[in-house]
Amino acid sequence: MADKELLLEFKDVNTYYGDLHVLKNVNYTIGKGEIVCLLGGNASGKSTTMKTIMGVVRPQTGSVTFDGKVIGNMPTSERVKLGIAPVLEARRLFPRMTVFENLEIGAYTQPRGPQFDQDLERVYSLFPRVKERRTQLAGTLSGGEQQMVAIGRALMARPRLICMDEPSMGLSPRFVETVFDTIQEINRQGCSIFMVEQNANMALSIAHRAYVLQTGVVVLSGTAAELRENDMIKQAYLGEMQVEGAAA
């Protein structure tokens, strides 16, 4: 990590919901150009991490910095303007708005103009399917199509960091591959990715580094290659994944 310029940093972050202590002295760093994956069991605080980055949950103590700026108390809209965009858990499109309107809302913090058209073209070329469906209500799309729109919507904000919360959840294997390919493509175009995933196998195959969160504590971190060889990971995530995949 020392060789990469720092984009996002959590320093000793503690997050609560009322009395429930969710993130406990958590530290993360995301470098410019990196794909970093966050693994962890249910209710370990992965989504809370994403919400803390977006600012819909505020850390009680500790600092969150983005590109050198302290953002821990900044309103969400300001963070989006700085270049952080989310792909939310379960996609969360606006179901009674068209695909195009969803993309427009993604560009909410951006001026309308040639830049918007350019971003739109980029999304359409990444996902020709999204272009086909642009006048359809988002709620009528299949899960895979919705995920494409959700990623496209994040791209419309011209992000430097995209925070993805379980982008492969509930998708057919074919779509899962498309999604991971796209994530790599977006990353190649210069955008950093912080990604929560249950699909540890796939996630570690495209990530540069990863963290493992357990009940709010980072218990393991390292390069993706290191983690793939780690026995605990093999047991808890890579093995378990097959079981989960079969059950789902």
Partner: peptide, 23 residues
């Protein structure tokens, strides 16, 4: 209008709307 669309988005999913940068 932009504000009108923001109103609809907020009505459909307030938290998601907030994370899109809507005040």
């Amino acid at each position: 209008t932009k504000l009108g669309k923001a109103i609809r988005a907020t009505a459909q999913d307030q938290e998601a709307a907030r994370m899109m940068g809507i005040e």
